[in-house]
Design a binder for these strands. Structure first.
Lengths: 185, 185
DNA sequence: CTTACCTATGCAACAAGTTGCACTGCAACT
DNA sequence: AGTTGCAGTGCAACTTGTTGCATAGGTAAG
């Protein structure tokens, strides 16, 4: 159970609606804790019942009303308590790694095509992270508090992406060798 | 649904019992697809019903009997089919990253202690991976087929661990600055 | 004018994964 | 003699996350 806590962290930074949270998860924390909007709504409902957050309906013009959530005192206590708890080990789930391992039992080229596709996807994501870093944190040396922590997590995302891309390249470089110059028609 | 397929890959390499599979997941594929023994048993049962695997009870002396699973032809077809499918994007779940991001709302030192603990854990794991590489794959250049693919996945695990450790160091180096030499009594 | 997408919230059914327990027997340490 | 740990399989209850659907008005493109 930790989507709760990721939401607490997010709300501590800024009060938001479920929709906004879900979108925010797509970007920033999303690399380390993804969630669909259904999941977010469900969990927000439970958190409200538990008294960790309160909801305020905010009418909007030309758009549906939204429910903006704020942390309560109890929510802040919960967050602080959770932060003091030991963290569970990182979990990385990679379909692709399993496929590479099993590539001998199927179409190797299809697997390699997937690796190449993922390489491109992650290169794109890395670029967007780097652009984001340049734009949002132009002077990291001067950061303190929340902003500094946010930057560090972004750095973590960047590091992970670079590692993945490096690995994809290693896989492609190694497994494409067997057909050295076939594509030159 | 992919534990099924990770098990198929594992069984394609070597027929094994549920217990052996669960232990194997702790080590090799575990970095990219972890599973508890309960989960493995449950899924194996379903796979048997679906006709992907067959079970043979193997009596042992001084130990409980075990059920050894083999891939069926249908299981191989399923595996090959799955390998040709697009892979889902990698998912990394990091409690710790969420905690770092929220560190301003709780005890920063407690979070940093956790980062240090994880750093040590992953350094240990990296060492065991590297030792494993040296022992199991002393001459990577000469590898082909399944062994080559296994080595590549191990390389992926090594890369990930190195990335994580690098990130931990960045976090510790940055956030410990504020108290430069306080511990010298 | 119709199709499609964005904002916004949410239910219901299902699949996947976790936690806790139960049972057996051997070997090793205290 | 008693505890701990390994090997071995498995059920039941629970939590978490996914997929598919429903609703509804606005805006933009074709």
């Amino acid at each position: 159970m930790a989507l709760e806590h990721a939401i607490l962290v997010s709300l501590a930074e800024q009060r938001s609606s479920g929709y906004e949270l879900a979108r925010r998860f797509d970007r920033s924390i999303g690399q380390f804790w993804s969630a669909t909007h259904q999941q977010v709504y469900k969990v927000l409902g439970r958190m409200e019942q538990d008294g960790w957050v309160t909801a305020t309906v905010v009418p909007q013009e030309g758009r549906p009303d939204k429910k903006v959530y704020d942390l309560t005192a109890a929510g802040r206590v919960e967050l602080a308590g959770w932060l003091a708890l030991p963290a569970q080990p990182e979990v990385t789930r990679s379909d692709l790694a399993v496929k590479v391992r099993g590539a001998a039992d199927g179409d190797l080229d299809a697997v390699l095509a997937e690796v190449a596709r993922h390489r491109a996807l992650h290169a794109e994501r890395l670029d967007s992270y780097l652009a984001n870093e340049k734009h949002e944190f132009p002077d990291p040396e001067s950061l303190t508090g929340r902003r500094l922590h946010q930057w560090l997590v972004l750095r973590g995302g960047i590091t992970l992406e670079q590692g993945l891309i490096g690995w994809y390249d290693e896989v492609l470089g190694t497994l494409r060798k067997p057909t050295p110059r076939k594509a030159t028609s």
